[in-house]
Design a protein around this nucleic acid. Structure first.
Lengths: 155, 155
DNA sequence: CAAAATTCACTTGCGTACAATTTAATTGCG
DNA sequence: CGCAATTAAATTGTACGCAAGTGAATTTTG
């Protein structure tokens, strides 16, 4: 039975530069997105991760914490305090599921529902900042989604 | 004098879904990268952002904090404590620039230099996890870099 | 040249991320 | 049924990110 033969190839020096790293391109773009969203989301009092949670809830107004975590790829260690802040801001409500008391059901308050009206403004603003064609955006999104699948599969 | 006419277009419902958001594709892929790097970088005792700083220093062994921040798009609020940890781990040294006492010059220690030998292993491992062709990687990197430029320009 | 403005790094405070642990509830299995 | 394994959420501890503010050094300007 052969042990794991880690094929360690010699990488050309050129390829070792920071600006040649795909990981860094993704990392830095993620931060750029957060910064671009900030002035827009400040107006409605949301952080970017909180906005993502709201996006999930605007699709389905009532979900257990676990499902939200699956969709955003976040664990309860991140979501618990974040949801607590959304609750304090009056956007969501948290209730134990009577069918399974382990679960906490997150649901939108009227205020949280009403905020959905801001989607058009938010997405239009960010769309302008992105400055790509819809085709490019779609292509990038698909490539990234596949890449993410590969990375997750490698674990 | 007309005020800024924000063209707020009506966004189709379909486009409002989380999984149609380019920003989320980037955000989630960035996390996937961090997770994929973790088992690899744990072996050498680095976090992913610390690894990025080391990449910069492996290109040029002596740089002011400001330059590192410019290359990584991070401010001193993030770098100061991170560099302190790298220093505590014996990988870098920090000295005030005698020409300009405001600046702190970060330089690699012998231990930090020696760690450069791990690049091949690290990049080969992650390259396998990425599971894309070199062409795809290059295309994605270029698109993301342009996107990042657009987002930064919008501020 | 001296006061004002700027620059650089550090610190503080808040909000993620995530590993690891804890607590409570439910499931599975003998 | 009864107890061990599993599951869900919260908590704890560490490490980013970043805004805002501090303090020291340098540059700009009147």
């Amino acid at each position: 039975m052969k042990a794991k033969t880690a094929k360690v190839m010699e990488i050309p020096e050129e390829e070792k530069r920071l600006d040649k790293q795909l990981c860094f391109a993704v990392y830095a773009t993620a931060h750029a997105f957060t910064r671009a969203y900030k002035p827009i989301l400040d107006k409605v009092g949301l952080t970017y991760p909180q906005y993502l949670v709201m996006l999930v809830l605007w699709e389905k107004a009532e979900l257990p914490v676990k499902t939200i975590g699956e969709q955003l790829d976040l664990d309860s260690g991140t979501l618990s305090p974040l949801l607590k802040r959304l609750e304090q801001n009056g956007l969501i409500k948290r209730t134990r599921d009577s069918r399974d008391e382990r679960q906490v059901i997150v649901s939108l308050t009227p205020k949280g529902q009403a905020m959905r009206a801001e989607i058009n403004t938010i997405m239009s603003s960010i769309g302008e900042a992105i400055g790509c064609t819809l085709e490019e955006m779609g292509a990038m999104r698909e490539m990234l989604t596949r890449l993410r699948g590969n990375l997750n599969a490698s674990l």
